[in-house]
Design a protein around this nucleic acid. Structure first.
Lengths: 340, 340
DNA sequence: GTGAAAGCGCTAACAA
DNA sequence: TTGTTAGCGCTTTCAC
């Protein structure tokens, strides 16, 4: 069966020899060409099957000077389900166009992101999708010169980079306005770390509070449900507790809800909570959350990318799509507790 | 800047011409060879930078007849956070060994899985990790002949495939024994679909119930929180409601909790709920769940894969690691309601 | 130190 | 219909 010694892939040359034909003929058979006699086709296919031949896509795309039909997806993290939503909808859309998607994890460290992006480009994809990219502009600039790039869930203002994103300032407006309309005045914000590229949420929150003439209160928990839980515990036990919490994303909101439950603080009777991203667990938990249309973003990104790939020239032919977020009100927000 | 017409990658030949040196010299410089004069090295590096040269990893590995330092990861789905845990811990471990990981989504359709696996192998990775693989044995057999394969979260009994998994029958034992010890007799099981490869959970549940002399009740919701919610709604409103629910995974458990909350059924006072996988949201929601040590599975898979890659011969040098699951008791399980 | 030549696995012109 | 030849971008002998 398999060769005894060092593992080695079976090549078309091996198949050709076994079948007693020339190398290019094997190539023709593998490509399903019509112009091959039935007899040789059979011989080749049998030889290939018995040797366990597997096409080498790397060599194919190199020789044919053609594309893999592959696009790269660089995700900062998958622990936030919203990124999974983007990925899945993108895969779905691109598959329909005959493209496959390979994902690499970037990470939160800019250097790591850079490195991952370079690794991805090394595979010579037809294009690259960046989700929550926080790398340097230099690595990005190099990529942009050679292949189409589209950023999702945030805008990257750079020549050659298309963007699909949701307006984060408006997200904050929606959340704050909703809470203020209910009568809240003491609204704290559980922000995403300052070094990840979603500062619009915190900025928007500050502006919205100022617009209502209310003082703002921003805290920066570690980016995890646990981190949020610890921060909320602190917030609720030291000094004056807010009557409402706007969380930078649903993962943080989940942690917040946990901490509140442990403290015996009732939601929404004692405190209201708003999340961000409207992930499926927000829906299941009855969490009021801002929807940034993740699946739609993935779909649009796929469309833009396909267009960029097809025209294949003119790096300034980029598109920018800003979506309007939508507040989904559920069971975690209501009137503030009446003053004692 | 970039060429006006059709987008084309800059090659070493372009760099060589611009720098006025030979092609191989550029290669040497790019590989950081010592045996190059400082002057030419500078010229080459400048030319490369100004042209925006990016190495072609595809051509490199082909020419050098050497590996990418890349391993493939085929995931059935990422909507279940437990698979993300496996992926992230694997990436962490393999990165430390200088390997990068590219992920492709398989899907639930066996044909799709097959296709994805072939696509992945086409990229000539050093090895492949399968998570929740449900493809055909033929595609797998072909892969196994050419490169190391390790299956995670389930066992694949096939020559050449290593496996890391948690004992699903024992999971069911832990859950059922816990509930029975609390006094439950009417325990229903929200099973994973029969066509995905985790039948051990349902089998184990049936056996455990039989062992206790109790009748079993298995229902098959659609594999999503929403599906579980609908199924549980049905279960609780038609006929006799069980006093406890053992769910095939935490996603289903989340849906179950949602449905119960909407029905006004209290957990754990009226009904106990046990999940599976001990995902981070189980921890945050106080869900009693069976931990299958996902991160540890990822780490072990990485170690096994590295070992298989290094020895590089003898396809029967495989390893099988069965982990023992652990029940984590939280707030969703307690005594059954006292009979009316 | 540097260039010429050969080759990785495959495809795409040819000619036969 | 088939084999021969050349070449994709890169690395790797091997002379010079």
């Amino acid at each position: 069966m398999s060769p005894a010694g060092r593992r080695r892939y079976v090549t078309q040359a091996d198949v050709a020899q076994a079948a007693g034909v020339s190398r290019p003929l094997v190539s023709l058979v593998m490509q399903g060409s019509e112009h091959v006699s039935e007899e040789k086709r059979q011989r080749v296919l049998e030889a290939a099957a018995s040797l366990g031949y597997l096409n080498n896509g790397i060599a194919t795309s190199l020789a044919g000077n053609r594309s893999h039909c592959m696009v790269g997806f660089l995700a900062q993290s998958l622990s936030n389900p919203v990124f999974v939503d983007v990925y899945e909808s993108l895969v779905e859309e691109l598959r329909a166009h005959g493209h496959r998607v390979v994902l690499m994890q970037g990470g939160f460290d800019p250097e790591e992101e850079d490195h991952s992006l370079r690794d991805l480009v090394t595979l010579r994809p037809d294009g690259v999708v960046l989700v929550g990219y926080a790398g340097s502009t230099s690595a990005l600039g190099a990529a942009v010169n050679s292949l189409p790039v589209v950023a999702v869930t945030r805008q990257i203002e750079m020549s050659g980079v298309s963007s699909v994103y949701s307006d984060d300032r408006m997200s904050a407006d929606l959340a704050v306005d909703h809470l203020v309309a209910l009568g809240h005045r003491d609204i704290a914000h559980l922000a995403l770390p300052a070094d990840i590229p979603y500062e619009g949420r915190a900025d928007g929150y500050r502006k919205a509070m100022a617009r209502h003439g209310l003082p703002d209160r921003v805290v920066f928990p570690e980016l995890s449900a646990r981190g949020a839980a610890e921060m909320v515990h602190e917030l609720m036990t030291e000094g004056s507790a807010p009557t409402a919490l706007f969380c930078g994303n649903d993962v943080l909101a989940l942690g917040a809800l946990d901490a509140l439950a442990r403290l015996g603080v009732r939601v929404p009777e004692d405190i209201s909570v708003v999340g961000h991203d409207n992930t499926s667990f927000a829906a299941r938990m009855g969490l009021t959350s801002v929807d940034q249309h993740a699946r739609q973003q993935g779909r649009i990104a796929a469309e833009i990318l396909m267009r960029m790939i097809e025209q294949e020239n003119l790096k300034d032919e980029i598109e920018t799509r800003r979506l309007l977020p939508r507040l989904v009100v559920r069971r975690t927000t209501s009137l503030p507790p009446s003053p004692r």
